[in-house]
Structure formats: structure tokens, C-alpha cells
Nucleic acid binder design. Structure first.
Length: 592
RNA sequence: GGUUUCGUAGCUCAAUUGGAUAGAGCACCUGACUACGGAUCAGGAGGUUUGGGGUUCGAAUCCCUACGAGACCA
């Protein structure tokens, strides 16, 4: 049993014996820094049932613990807060438990399988900052859920067809002059994006022309020649016109090559990729089924609808009058397909909060249709990334391109490292690897430290910071410990637990306490789908270690037991940092 | 217009889900045994948690309201 569980049980006994009340869940919180102790029990809730003052209750329970609990050393009471200190032997015990747990922080398989869909790019433009938040979240969550005991399937649904793709195809056909990634030296996804922008420029000028001729603007935007042509191209594609399909395949293959380069660079991958071009026709049979079951109904124009007023939602179109799909139709079909393919217990979608309503509708429909798997469906809704100038808009060219950003970060990592001159003996390959680790560490940490649900601001100047609350700060702490480990090995010092009468230093207790929290944080991150929980933990652990490091001397302590103990502590901290950052998709360097 | 999310130090974010004197980082000041890695550590300053009501032992957190920002549905 864990120390914390023992402590809770002892408190429960205290309440039972002293007040004759059976307390259900005992909740302990970490004691605030300005007070003495490590665990705090709040006694206010017991005031009513015991008819005693909170401070008195604290005294009574505290005294009981001091006399009867095997783990408690002493206590103090401030108002209704009972602050508890553990015995030195208990601290050593706690550390021993951590030390001997080879799978510390990872949980055995829980028999649950979960599918995480994320990334889901469009093939008409390269990835930008918003995609990075999505990718990092999805990737990190998959790792966290795995550590939490789930069997995880990572999937990606590529939006590879539709009017937007046809726009870049059209612009390329008209203005491309046979340009290729090879001939132009432009990365494939950026090349496609270039023509998407060209379409928009030409299209807008066509609208202006029509408006100048006296046509109202909304009509002009529908009747501009290139818009009509793009729609024509979409029809040709749907009819399988060989020329159109060939162009589509050619451009998409460029994009995929570009994407895979970026995915490799950021270390993200998938177990299964679905393509919308294969799934966009799915869902229509489900519409038929829904009509038969009277879940859906037809309107006079032949369109099909569902009324979700009972769920507090609106009336929602599920199939157009001309029989063509809308987004929700495809999603119904794709979800059914996923379930047929994998039969998972849970289906998660990492998608921006702009689609909150869409997913509410999707899940509500699945429930109405009686799909069992609907219970396991969940939208991991995350906030948009804003810039100091406001929202990113691709049409206004204010997007932060993912590839550009990564290159900039690598450059900064390289400059900063060379300035410090600590790795002058590195081969250039080693050095480049380090710059990559630092650049991605900084970027991933920056995007993952914020609660996913909240929208966040991306300030380019702050994000490239390598000091303070950043990925490189934590990486630095790791590298520093590795340096200590090398020294310990050289001098033949082995890390081990001291004898039972060892007097545990305050800084050592702080470290053990932080370490002991790790497994609970993993579970909490998995439960809340929040990598930020792990991010903050890694930072706190690194900070506590740096305080420890400044406060005590590891190698020059006269007591050899202290030296060995601190080496052991340092080692576990480094491993825990490596694991925690690993859950964020961040690598750790031996030196930096 | 309807629905919905949010508003915390100058800036970016926390606050163990209703608990103590609301905490970190950046930026700004002051300091750190000639030191096991200074990409670090210690300290200072910085707050009416958007305003106003309410609920209770106790509110940044829950309810109402005003203002401000975002998103979605047409």
C-alpha cells in the first residue's frame, strides 16, 4: 500500500475512534510552501458533524496520528488545516518503493482500447502553428493514455478532396507551367499552398471586376468564372474524369511528401490513416436507416433533417435535397467505419473548439440511432492559437508556417548553444541532433504547457525563450544530472538507500515528495486528457531538483551515505524527467 | 438574433476541482562559497481575480446581472 493510502486510512481511523463518525473519502492536499509539513488535511467539513471547532478537530486527529500512525512524525494545526510531517524512516521507505518500481509511472494494461484521431490536415496547404498544437496534443495524449494502461490506436483523417483542393488544382492548371517540387525547389505542400493562394488572388480580382460592372458582391462571389470552374472541377473529380483525377493525384502526392517530412521532423506518426476521398460517400446508408427508424425525416424539398430540440440543440440538416452529403453525414459514416475496423471502447477526436457544436450533434445523432459506441465518443476540444496581432488567417497571410517556425527555433537553439560554448567538442551531426532536440523541446513545451481547453497566445519572441518555464530548462536539468551520473560512475560511487537511522535533509524530502506524485499526475493527465498536467509536473520537478542541487552538496558531503543517497535520488529524478518529457514527445540530451 | 466558451500581476500562464496570506515564468531591481554545469539558485517589487449582487464556516472557482472578447448556428 502506498504511504498516502496508509495516511488516509489512519486519518479515517482517527475520525472513527475519536468522533465515532465514518468518513468516506479522505482528501489530502500538498501543504503550501509557507507552512511546515507535506500533507494537509482540511477539517472544516467535519465541524458540523462533530460539533467542534476546526482547529480542535485538527489537534485531536493530529494527536491520534502522532501516537498511533506508523508513518507520521509530527503535525501542526493552522486554523482548520492539519499539516502532517512524515518520519524519516517513512521518507526512506517511500523512496525505496519508487526505486524498486521498475515501471514507475506506467500502469498495467486496463483492458480498454481507445482511438485517438488527430492532425487531420487539408491537402491544399502546409501545416501551420494551429496544426502543431493539434499534433502535439494528439501525440502526447496517445502516449499519456498508453502510460495510463490503455491500448491506443492513433489515426488521422486526411481531408484530401473537396472544393478547396479543386481551387489549388485549377490555379495550378492555369498558371503552373508544369512547375514541380523538383523544378522549383519548393517543398510539395508549400507548392500546393502557393497555388491555393494564387487562386484566391485571381478569384478576388474577378469579383472586383464583376462588382465594377454593377453586380452585387454576394452574387459576384458566386458567379466569378474561377469559382464556377472550381465547382466544375469538383464534379469532374467526383465523376472520375481521368485527367482531373491524375492532376489531383499528382498534387496530393507532392503534399504527402511534404507532410511526411514535417511529421518526421516533429516525431509524429499514425497507426492508421483514413482518406476522405475514400470515406466521403459513407454515411448515406445510415441516413436511410435513420429515416426508417423515424430518427430523421424528409422535408418537401427532399432534404433530410433531425430535430435535436430534446438535447437542447437545433434542427440539423443531415442530407441535402440533391442527395449530396454534408459534413455530419460523412462523419457518421466514418465513425461507423472506424468502429467496424477496430471495435474500440473509446473514440476520441482532437479537434479545435470551433467544432464543439458539430460534435455535440454528431454524438447526439449516434445515440439516437442506438449506436452503443456513442457512449465512448468524446471530443477533445482545444482552444485556438492566437497571435499578438489577433487571429491567424491564411487568406491574410498572417499564419505562422510550421516548417518556418521549426527552422527558426533550430537556428535559435544553435546560436544560443554556440554562445555558451559547452559542446565545442561535438561532431556536427551530434550538434545538429542537439539543436533539433532543443528546438522541438522548446516548441512542444510552449504549446503543451497550457490547458488544452483554453485558447492561447503565441508570442514569437517568448516562445523561442530557453530560460525559465520552458522545455530547455527541464532538458538542462536532465543534462546536468547526467553529468553528475558520469562523475559518479568515474569515481565508482553507487547510488543506494542509506541505513534506517539516516537523517533525511529537507531538500531530500521535497524531492522524494515530488517524485512520489508522478504516477498520480499521469493518471490525472489521462483522465482529463490534459498533457499540461505533465508539463507542469516536469517543470516543478526540475525546479525542486535545482533547489536541492543549490542547497546540498552531492559529492563533497563528509557522510558517504549522504553521497550515495543523493546520487540515487538524482538518478531517479533524471529518469522521471525523461519519462515525463517523453510523454510530451520531448527528447532529453546527455549534454547541452 | 439564438447557442456557447472565456475574462487572474505590465506580458504569458498556474491555482490539486469550494480551502490557508491567489502562485510560477518573462520583463524590472538586488545578491550567489572561486562552483558537482550560471540555459542555475536566493531575494525584492508587482493583485479590489473585468464591475456589481447572491449562496456559506470559506468563492478566482457555484448562481444572477452588467460590460468586454472569441467561437458556432443561420
Amino acid at each position: 500500500m502506498s504511504i498516502e493510502a496508509i495516511l488516509k486510512q489512519d486519518i479515517q481511523k482517527a475520525i472513527q475512534q475519536r468522533f465515532d463518525i465514518s468518513a468516506e473519502d479522505i482528501i489530502l492536499q500538498p501543504t503550501k510552501k509557507e507552512f511546515e509539513g507535506f500533507y494537509t488535511f482540511v477539517t472544516f467539513p467535519l465541524a458540523k458533524s462533530t460539533r467542534k471547532a476546526p482547529a480542535e478537530i485538527g489537534q485531536i486527529i493530529g494527536n491520534y496520528l502522532k501516537n498511533n500512525s506508523l508513518v507520521v512524525d509530527n503535525f501542526n494545526v493552522v486554523q482548520g488545516f492539519l499539516n502532517i510531517n512524515l518520519k524519516d524512516s517513512t521518507w526512506l521507505n517511500l523512496f525505496d518503493q519508487i526505486l524498486s518500481d521498475t515501471a514507475f509511472g506506467t500502469f498495467p494494461a486496463n483492458g480498454q482500447s481507445v482511438m485517438v484521431e488527430f492532425s487531420s490536415p487539408n491537402t491544399n496547404k502546409p501545416l501551420h502553428l494551429g496544426h502543431l498544437r493539434n499534433n502535439f496534443l494528439g501525440d502526447s495524449l496517445s502516449k499519456i493514455l498508453e502510460a495510463g494502461g490503455y491500448d491506443v490506436v492513433k489515426t488521422c483523417l486526411v481531408n484530401d478532396r473537396g472544393i478547396h483542393i479543386c481551387k489549388s488544382m485549377l490555379a495550378y492548371r492555369e498558371l503552373g507551367n508544369g512547375e514541380t517540387p523538383e523544378s522549383s525547389g519548393i517543398k510539395g505542400d508549400h507548392l500546393a499552398g502557393k497555388y491555393y493562394v494564387k487562386f484566391d488572388i485571381e478569384y478576388k480580382s474577378q469579383i472586383r471586376e464583376l462588382v465594377a460592372q454593377g453586380m452585387p458582391e454576394d452574387e459576384a462571389s458566386k458567379k466569378a468564372p474561377w469559382m464556377l470552374e472550381a465547382q466544375q472541377l469538383l464534379l469532374s473529380w467526383e465523376n472520375g474524369d481521368p485527367e482531373t483525377v491524375a492532376l489531383w493525384q499528382k498534387m496530393n502526392s507532392w503534399v504527402y511528401e511534404g507532410f511526411s517530412e514535417t511529421y518526421n521532423k516533429i516525431g509524429v506518426g499514425f497507426d492508421k490513416t483514413y482518406y476522405e476521398s475514400n470515406t466521403y460517400l459513407l454515411g448515406k446508408d445510415i441516413i436511410e436507416e435513420g429515416i426508417e427508424k423515424n430518427v430523421f425525416y424528409r422535408k418537401s424539398d427532399n432534404s433530410v433533417w433531425i430535430d435535436l430540440a430534446e438535447e437542447g440543440l437545433d434542427e440539423k440538416l443531415v442530407l441535402r435535397g440533391d442527395g449530396t452529403s454534408v459534413y455530419i453525414t460523412q462523419d457518421l459514416g466514418t465513425t461507423e467505419l472506424k468502429n467496424n475496423d477496430y471495435h474500440n471502447n473509446r473514440y476520441l477526436w482532437v479537434v479545435g473548439n470551433e467544432q464543439d457544436y458539430h460534435f455535440k450533434v454528431l454524438f447526439a445523432i449516434l445515440k439516437r440511432l442506438g449506436r452503443q459506441y456513442a457512449e465512448g465518443c468524446y471530443h477533445i476540444s482545444y482552444g485556438m492559437v492566437d497571435l499578438p496581432s489577433g487571429k491567424m488567417k491564411s487568406r491574410e497571410g498572417t499564419v505562422v508556417d510550421a516548417d518556418d517556425l521549426i527552422s527558426q527555433m533550430i537556428q535559435t537553439a544553435s546560436d544560443r548553444t554556440q554562445e555558451l560554448g559547452k559542446i565545442d567538442d561535438f561532431e556536427s551531426k551530434e550538434a545538429n541532433q542537439l539543436y533539433n532536440q532543443l528546438a522541438l523541446g522548446a516548441l512542444k513545451y510552449f504549446l503543451l504547457k497550457v490547458d488544452p481547453k483554453k485558447r492561447m497566445l503565441f508570442n514569437p519572441e517568448e516562445s523561442i525563450d530557453f530560460q525559465g518555464h520552458t522545455g530547455p530548462f527541464i532538458q538542462y536539468t536532465y543534462a546536468r544530472i547526467r553529468s553528475i551520473m558520469r562523475k559518479a560512475e568515474q569515481s565508482g560511487i553507487e547510488g543506494k538507500l542509506p541505513s534506517a537511522n539516516y537523517e533525511v535533509h529537507k531538500a531530500e524530502k521535497e524531492l522524494i515528495f515530488m517524485l512520489s506524485q508522478y504516477p498520480a499526475r499521469v493518471l490525472s493527465a489521462a483522465g482529463d486528457f490534459a498533457p499540461s498536467v505533465i508539463s507542469l509536473y516536469a517543470f516543478e520537478l526540475a525546479k525542486v531538483y535545482n533547489q536541492f542541487y543549490a542547497e546540498v552538496s552531492i559529492f563533497s558531503d563528509p557522510d558517504p551515505e549522504a553521497v550515495q543517497f543523493r546520487v540515487a535520488l538524482s538518478k531517479v529524478v533524471s529518469e522521471t524527467i525523461r519519462k515525463a518529457l517523453g510523454l510530451l514527445g520531448i527528447e532529453v540530451p546527455e549534454r547541452m
